[in-house]
Simulated assay, not measured.
Amino acid sequence: MVSIVLEWLFPFPCVAMFTTLLMLIGGLLGYLYGPYWGLRKVPGPPTLPLVGHLPLLAKYGPDVFSLLAKQYGPIYRFHMGRQPLILVADPELCKEVGIKKFKDIPNRSIPSPISASPLHQKGLFFTRDSRWSTMRNTILSVYQPSHLASLVPTMQSFIESATQNLDTPNEDIIFSNLSLRLATDVIGEAAFGVNFGLSKPHSVCESIKSVSVNNVRNDDDEVSDFINQHIYSTTQLKMDLSGSFSIILGLLAPILQEPFRQILKRIPGTMDSKIESTNEKLSGPLDEIVKRRMEDKNRTSKNFLSLILNARESKKVSENVFSPDYISAVTYEHLLAGSATTAFTLSSIVYLVAGHREVEKKLLQEIDGFGPPDRIPTAQDLHDSFPYLDQVS
């Protein structure tokens, strides 16, 4: 009798459906809030399901990060969709995290724009486990102060080339384009040992996207094509809701990003298809540059690519770690990360200083007081003789 009553009150199909529903809800909540749980004690604004803090980014733009830093302190949480990020808004803490503690932060989470680009996943920043350690230890010498100091003359030559005749054009100069040209040239020389020639005076006022073979000092067609694809690829790595559909989906539901990317990249006209085409065109010139440098037996170790190849051939590192595709990716990573961030920093500084005339005046006084215009500063001069410039930057 009791069993009959229980079966009448709680029919088995209903119990099974209710249990399944609870498991689905629990799994969904675990998927959405699993990454958050380990960082729940880090301060940050309340999050919305799926979109996280993206509405705040859409409302305030980049200013949202300074606003949140004032409210929550120099270390706070910001959710790009489901994925929480720890943002550090203090210069000294940034040095601590980015330099001193860098070796202690392997296996980083991969943002959705990077997930949409297999090329970028093979760079140093997103490789994992023992491969990451080996790659990091191999390229560490590139960041020694002595090597960086040796690049000052290279930077000076590109700066002089880029800033010639800036007062002669009749039309306005887009400084963000100029700074991206300059940064790409400097890092292209340091990373690949290739002079892309974007800083030549006659190309200052041209759009970056219109770089032709005639504007590139290297005569190889693949270098010109590489520059065009690099610039397009840089502009498409968007951590907001203006990216491709698969990137947006990766912010909201990362598990669905790769299946949708595989489908959409095969549909002509979609943003995913364009990004896939760009990656393929980008990989070709990269592989050609690496192949040509591998065949060059007289190369030096002054640029990043040659340093890796020399270490690989001397058996200091396994060829399996630095396979050609990883060599291409980690070298390109330096060009991508360095040029985009440097250009953005330079443009932001010029924009902010232009709005504060007293800062501009004091800055120019310090620069003019260094010496005659033709005096080239050394790395030590940059460290010791420009305290106010250091504060501004």
Score class of each variant (00 low, 15 high):
33 Y>N: 13
33 Y>G: 10
35 P>G: 02
35 P>T: 04
36 Y>K: 13
36 Y>R: 14
38 G>S: 14
39 L>G: 12
42 V>S: 08
43 P>N: 04
43 P>F: 03
45 P>H: 03
46 P>T: 07
47 T>F: 03
48 L>V: 12
48 L>P: 00
48 L>R: 12
49 P>G: 12
50 L>P: 02
50 L>E: 05
50 L>M: 07
50 L>H: 02
51 V>K: 07
54 L>D: 03
54 L>I: 07
55 P>H: 03
55 P>S: 05
55 P>I: 02
56 L>P: 00
59 K>I: 05
59 K>F: 07
59 K>Y: 10
59 K>M: 11
64 V>P: 01
65 F>E: 02
65 F>H: 09
67 L>H: 12
67 L>W: 08
67 L>Y: 12
68 L>D: 07
68 L>I: 03
69 A>C: 09
69 A>H: 11
70 K>N: 10
70 K>H: 12
73 G>W: 05
73 G>A: 03
74 P>R: 07
75 I>G: 07
76 Y>K: 10
76 Y>A: 07
77 R>Y: 05
77 R>A: 05
78 F>E: 05
79 H>D: 08
79 H>Y: 09
80 M>S: 12
80 M>I: 13
80 M>A: 11
84 P>Y: 13
84 P>C: 10
84 P>R: 14
86 I>F: 08
87 L>D: 05
89 A>Y: 07
90 D>F: 10
92 E>A: 15
92 E>N: 15
92 E>G: 13
92 E>R: 15
93 L>R: 09
93 L>E: 07
94 C>E: 11
95 K>Q: 13
95 K>R: 14
95 K>A: 14
95 K>G: 11
95 K>N: 13
97 V>P: 06
98 G>C: 10
98 G>D: 09
99 I>G: 01
101 K>G: 06
102 F>S: 12
103 K>P: 01
104 D>P: 00
104 D>M: 00
105 I>F: 11
105 I>C: 09
105 I>N: 12
108 R>C: 00
108 R>F: 03
111 P>Q: 08
112 S>L: 04
112 S>T: 05
112 S>Q: 01
112 S>G: 04
113 P>K: 02
115 S>C: 12
116 A>H: 00
117 S>N: 15
117 S>D: 14
118 P>A: 06
118 P>H: 04
119 L>K: 01
121 Q>F: 00
122 K>T: 08
122 K>Y: 11
123 G>H: 06
127 T>P: 06
128 R>K: 15
130 S>A: 15
132 W>L: 04
132 W>M: 06
132 W>V: 11
133 S>M: 14
135 M>E: 14
138 T>Q: 06
140 L>C: 10
141 S>T: 11
142 V>F: 12
144 Q>P: 01
145 P>R: 02
148 L>S: 00
149 A>V: 01
149 A>R: 06
150 S>W: 03
153 P>G: 06
155 M>S: 11
159 I>N: 05
159 I>L: 13
159 I>F: 07
159 I>W: 02
160 E>C: 13
161 S>T: 08
161 S>Q: 14
162 A>P: 02
163 T>W: 02
